[in-house]
Design a protein around this nucleic acid. Sequence first.
DNA 1: AATGAATGAGGGTTCATTCAT
DNA 2: CATGAATGAACCCTCATTCAT
Lengths: 213, 213, 213, 213
Amino acid sequence: MSRGRIDKRRAILDAAFTVFAREGYHQACVKEIAAEAGVAKPTVYNHLGDKEGLFREAMAAAADRALAESLSAIEALTGEGDVRATLEDVGHRLLRCQGGERAWALRRLLYAEIHRVPELFDTVHGRGANRLGEALANRLARLSLGGGLRAADPDVAAGQFLALLTGPMETRSRLGTRPVAEAELRAGARAAVDTFLRAFGPVSAEGQPSGDR
Amino acid sequence: MSRGRIDKRRAILDAAFTVFAREGYHQACVKEIAAEAGVAKPTVYNHLGDKEGLFREAMAAAADRALAESLSAIEALTGEGDVRATLEDVGHRLLRCQGGERAWALRRLLYAEIHRVPELFDTVHGRGANRLGEALANRLARLSLGGGLRAADPDVAAGQFLALLTGPMETRSRLGTRPVAEAELRAGARAAVDTFLRAFGPVSAEGQPSGDR
Amino acid sequence: MSRGRIDKRRAILDAAFTVFAREGYHQACVKEIAAEAGVAKPTVYNHLGDKEGLFREAMAAAADRALAESLSAIEALTGEGDVRATLEDVGHRLLRCQGGERAWALRRLLYAEIHRVPELFDTVHGRGANRLGEALANRLARLSLGGGLRAADPDVAAGQFLALLTGPMETRSRLGTRPVAEAELRAGARAAVDTFLRAFGPVSAEGQPSGDR
Amino acid sequence: MSRGRIDKRRAILDAAFTVFAREGYHQACVKEIAAEAGVAKPTVYNHLGDKEGLFREAMAAAADRALAESLSAIEALTGEGDVRATLEDVGHRLLRCQGGERAWALRRLLYAEIHRVPELFDTVHGRGANRLGEALANRLARLSLGGGLRAADPDVAAGQFLALLTGPMETRSRLGTRPVAEAELRAGARAAVDTFLRAFGPVSAEGQPSGDR
DNA sequence: AATGAATGAGGGTTCATTCAT
DNA sequence: CATGAATGAACCCTCATTCAT
């Protein structure tokens, strides 16, 4: 059947994202993408139309992957176990997702082209941060019901959790330009969770930040 | 003397940033910048070298301006007056700075070209967010000493305050693509300050979010 | 048997001429021809070699058809009946042939590609205007012998008759770009025959143009 | 001043027509035109926009030239001198104009692209055959008044004169593909004038075709 | 015999940059 | 110094043509 066709399409999209990530949309040339995918230039056009379409699809595919990773990262956020430890673990995993090279590339490309291609926002955030935010809000809501968190608007709390987590990392990683050590990720997660729990933690947990370091 | 020369240079840089902001670095063409500045193309080259230099200088100038605005926004953050009201006011002013069209353009351009021009990070953040972060940290430290805030690492607190402030706004403004109503800015500032004070507010202020609305 | 093969070949040639007529040789793309014929691209190549051959064959087929129409149009030119009326009728029929959409397309394509493909002249005129000219000359010769026309070189007379007929129509139809009303065709035929008979008509017919209108 | 600019524009247009005449519109590539003009490709674009505009302007310029030649050819058509001799001379000159290489190229290009660029008809005929037809009609009208011709609609007579002149030549020159000997041109002009005068000549001239050869 | 997929070659157009005035 | 004009280098895209199925 057209199994091969789909595979090739996937290969081209992967190659495209790789090159777009490395060069940016305008600097990237289709020839290079084709070379990266190991096909001839017209094959790219046959499969994905013009450069614009190639870009959109590559972005969508990358966003899908990034979302899947992030969603899987917050699956550990059940009501069971120590709240602080769980949040730190989830935070750490999220930072690893969002701090990955491809995730940063996705975000940079999004910022770079959002003005020219406004739909890109939904393409990426609809499948990425927002869907992630909603999923996280759901988890936090259940945690609140279970007494693990002080009651609050779960959407706001989710947004703020993500902001506390990723915001300070932007500077640390120089916008994803510099690799961030594992320890720094951990520290970042802990700092975010500290503050988050001071604001939203259960009364009982107040004043007991994670013990060591 | 060279007064006119400097003026023309300034005019070209302004025009350049306007066009870069509108089109992005690669899409922007020197011809258009020259037209926007009201001069001929070679004049641009005489004054600022090549397109690359033009971009760097334009970014630096725009970053300087943005920093000045933000610094002036946090000047209200003295120890005097109600902490919550002051923070909300400052937060609101900051959001107006950072949410302005040129500020978003600056950020988008930074994201877009950071990979190709790494120095851009310092050019912008050295004069922008970081210097802002430090200044904010200083203010917060003095607030802590004055008892207006619970003791904490001022750098961390400053970073988190900015994150709580701007993070959730990214989605709301669709990365600066959509104008955000004044009321939304106020609400955003309040939400950030609420959480910030729950985490870092003085014990006395605990549990007393801004009364109305 | 190969009945189906021939049919498909014919279908492809028809489609080819249609597309060539619409787009011109260079603008027409094989893909479109294949689509018009309802087959896949390689099928076209299997049946007719490359684009060049496709073009030649399509032109030849179209020329054959056009010739057949024109030849049938002059069949009415027997010695019987009124000379003027007969000539006008034949002239009118010829104008309808030569003024048809496909005939104009044929001529335009001939003009367009004659320089690149000189044989095209014989392909088209050998089967078209020239063979038509000869046939017409034969008819006129018999008319002369029968006294219906003043004696003259039949080849010259035939050529001039066709020239008087079609020449002025070129401007009227804007080179086949504009449809010409039936009445205009009639008037054109009458004007041509008027002059033709003034020059070649029998002495008896002198000065008696077609009576009405 | 911009004298040089105009000169270069003229040079480019000349080169363009030369190449278009040689290759046809679609086969001609801008690179070759630029080479023929001795400039770089972008210079062509600076002066004349895209290929389409280049074509239109080149056609208009060529048509202007062709018209000037033809108009000058019929200037000899005054009432003085022998009618037959004068007409033959004018006819011969016209055939030399219309049978020239550039004139044929102009016509072929016109036929080739008329469907895609309908305005071309006016561009060429408005300045060419039609304006020529009108001018010729004027001359013939004065000839009629002077008794040199039998009275007739001058527009019709002019059109038919041109048709008798050029129509039979199309086949002889294989659509301008083959050079036509001077003697053939003379013979063509004589044949046309013979018939024309038989139809429109003064009664006195009837039956006295040009004596020798 | 017919097709989906792939490719090599080539063309129009734009742009950053440099002379000559 | 400012400018009009010129250029070399790229890049996107299309198309005629050929395999493998």
